[in-house]
């Protein structure tokens, strides 16, 4: 019971802060839209007609993946902030399980990220995508699961870092490579050997692929999904469980 209360209040804290900081919401929505409309528009001139679908439509699931990646990981590595400013101690000495703290934090990331995914997803008519109500609902649901997985991954990362100087390290060496190797900007199957393997180890790849599975119609060819929807979901669910477990263990570890 205490643990459920703890999860609830950890999520509420995150949401309260998210709503309070308007600039955070605006900038977190602006990033994917800039990529979608600026990069997407430019690139679609290059990779246009031959591939069977406009480039902007191709990267749309990837842009949703980007929204999830940035907002989930940012939300999770706020743990480093909490560590730096002492608040984490307040949580760690509370009589709750470490796993509840991890789940609470992951759900915080999921909540914040889902709001943003919803806003970005609603742009679909603008880029000429046609989605049924069912596709929209399924995209949101899968988006939540992917958010949870990436958030819990972010917590595993956060347990390794002590201060905000590490922020740029995480940004440059974890978030950006994860984004580019996720199949968001180009199909994984077109990557050269080593990179193909790296992208297969990237949890976000399966999230983006699941979204492609939902949105793309059959016959997308080389631009289509790389894996089956079942495999995508399996990886997402299993990796979530593994990350939550890992993060709990790392939290429990005492100096």
């Amino acid at each position: 019971m205490t643990d459920l209360n703890a999860i609830y209040v950890i999520v509420m804290r995150e949401l309260k802060k998210f709503v309070r900081e308007k600039s955070r919401l605006v900038s977190s929505i602006a990033r994917p839209l800039i990529w979608l409309f600026l990069v997407g528009a430019g690139m679609s001139r290059l990779v246009g007609p031959r591939t069977g679908m406009p480039y902007t439509r191709f990267i749309f699931p990837g842009i949703l993946g980007m929204t999830i990646l940035f907002s989930s990981i940012f939300s999770s590595i706020s743990i480093i902030w909490d560590k730096e400013f002492g608040f984490l101690k307040e949580i760690l000495v509370a009589p709750v399980r470490r796993s509840s703290i991890v789940i609470g934090k992951s759900l915080s990331g999921t909540a914040v990220s889902s709001i943003q995914v919803f806003i970005v997803l609603m742009m679909f008519p603008v880029i000429g995508e046609r989605l049924s109500f069912f596709q929209v609902a399924l995209t949101l649901l899968v988006g939540m699961l992917v958010s949870f997985s990436i958030s819990s991954f972010g917590i595993v990362i956060a347990t390794f870092y002590e201060n905000y100087e590490s922020f740029s390290v995480i940004m440059n060496f974890i978030i950006m490579p994860m984004f580019f190797l996720s199949g968001a900007m180009y199909p994984v199957k077109l990557l050269p050997g080593a990179l193909k393997w790296a992208s297969r180890l990237n949890p976000l790849t399966y999230g983006v692929d699941a979204l492609k599975n939902i949105m793309f119609h059959a016959g997308a060819g080389a631009m289509g999904p790389d894996f089956s929807f079942t495999l995508d979901m399996l990886v997402i669910l299993l990796s979530s469980a593994a990350f939550v477990l890992l993060a709990s263990v790392f939290f429990e570890r005492k100096q």
């Binding site: 309260k16 309070r20 400013f85 002492g86 608040f87 984490l88 101690k89």
Partner: peptide
């Protein structure tokens, strides 16, 4: 517990 350094959430 009241720690030596503040453990409050200053944004709340």
């Amino acid at each position: 517990i009241v720690f030596q350094d503040s453990t409050l959430d200053k944004d709340l």
